[in-house]
Design a protein around this nucleic acid. Structure first.
Lengths: 227, 227
DNA sequence: TTCATGCTTCGACCATCACCGAAACATCCG
DNA sequence: CGGATGTTTCGGTGATGGTCGAAGCATGAA
């Protein structure tokens, strides 16, 4: 039966190890050049070029030319969410590729998921926002309450600017390590940006890890939990 | 470079058209037999068997043998969520195939499966017991909770008598019209017995059909959902 | 301009894997 | 018991697609 949605085509794109490595590398949210991605995937630039062409045609990544460089980033949050979901499935079947180490622990604690916060801290933040009544879950997408809008203001997020964009304000994203939902969308991205701006946490170069300082973590909890 | 689980393995599983068609067919939540899935995928049973073995090894589907048939269903909600996400990524979201099950409407609605309730009502009852927290699924056999025991008492079931017997209290049984799980075991039998005793439904002579009256159906829903 | 760097296209090689025929195995029915 | 149906294993074939070398653009620097 040849009909049906082209789920196979998209999945086959992700299904190649070289392309999967590229996409995983792009989960940091950074835009990488074609040669950098070739190195990540462990293939020659020729091969990487072919892969990137396919990923573009499949709508998974978005290229941006700058001079003679070609910067590539994930096409959007939906792509990141699907990749995160796939990681959850892979982790669930015990097919971890990396042996557990200190770096893994850091990733589990807090990491970047495309452009928002994931890991234990991400899940905690999501749950806390729900508990404080700032966020309403249950529907197709989470919804920000009035109290939540006020909170965002206190947090230093310019909601009006975010609402003007096309991308949705709030989105659910599934965490592969926690198997729980955390907050994506432009609000999720803005919250992470503020956390970094405040110096509560910093990003490890070339990694998805987000390193909170002890005082930074306390400050975040304080900011979210205060009534 | 290599952080996170190996998504290529899982994605490659979904990436084959035949397997993708199988998974898409399973998105209804129904369990399908191996030959039915072969037809869905448009391949021979031999090929389908190979695909199913891979999907099982990858943890995407869960098999269940009943007689000489092999019923296969999705391994869990996470799998369905990922498939849903992939469908969203696919540009032209295709249509879902709708399979028509049994011919007799009455049998499909409610019937006797050996000694317990099957059909739409049977599946509804099973789901409702889960949702109310009366039943715990997921293990080898469903388990009755304390609240479930209390419910059984209110329902008029003598649990002590049932527990004395050798036959298991709770058993999963696969519905041939819904292709979903419903409750068998001595408790399943006792529940059906009480339903008939209360006059909520009656059996049609010489048939497996169980005919609920409108008030009887309402009474059953009331009894299960109250609180 | 000439050279260097980054990316893409072309061509060919080759491993992987889906596919099916045949046959074995398992289960149910009469 | 034998016959029918559903599922699995095995062996061999064929095709899709990843891979790289070599060469062809494109951009930036000297």
């Amino acid at each position: 039966m040849k009909d049906g949605p082209d789920i196979a085509r998209v999945a086959a794109l992700i299904g190649d190890p070289a392309r999967a490595n590229m996409l995983t590398a792009l989960m940091t949210g950074q835009a990488l050049t074609a040669t950098e991605l070739a190195a990540e995937a462990g293939v020659t630039p020729q091969t990487a070029s072919s892969h990137l062409a396919q990923l573009e045609a499949g709508g998974l990544v978005r290229p941006r030319r700058q001079g003679r460089h070609k910067y590539v980033s994930l096409a959007g949050e939906e792509v990141a969410a699907v990749l995160e979901g796939l990681m959850g499935l892979a982790a669930g079947t015990g097919q971890l590729r990396t042996r557990v180490g200190p770096r893994d622990a850091a990733l589990r604690t807090a990491r970047v998921c495309y452009n928002h916060l994931a890991g234990e801290m991400g899940v905690w933040l999501y749950d806390a926002l729900l508990e404080q009544g700032y966020l309403l879950a249950g529907a197709e997408r989470p919804e920000l309450t009035e109290a939540g809008a006020a909170f965002a203001g206190r947090f230093g997020v310019d909601l009006e600017a975010l609402r003007g964009r096309r991308s949705p304000l709030c989105l659910d994203c599934l965490d592969w390590s926690m198997r729980r939902t955390h907050l994506a969308g432009s609000l999720g991205r803005a919250l992470l940006a503020r956390i970094l701006e405040q110096g509560w946490a910093r990003r490890e170069a070339g990694s998805r890890a987000v390193l909170f300082s002890a005082s930074g973590e306390a400050a975040l909890r304080e900011a979210v939990l205060r009534e």
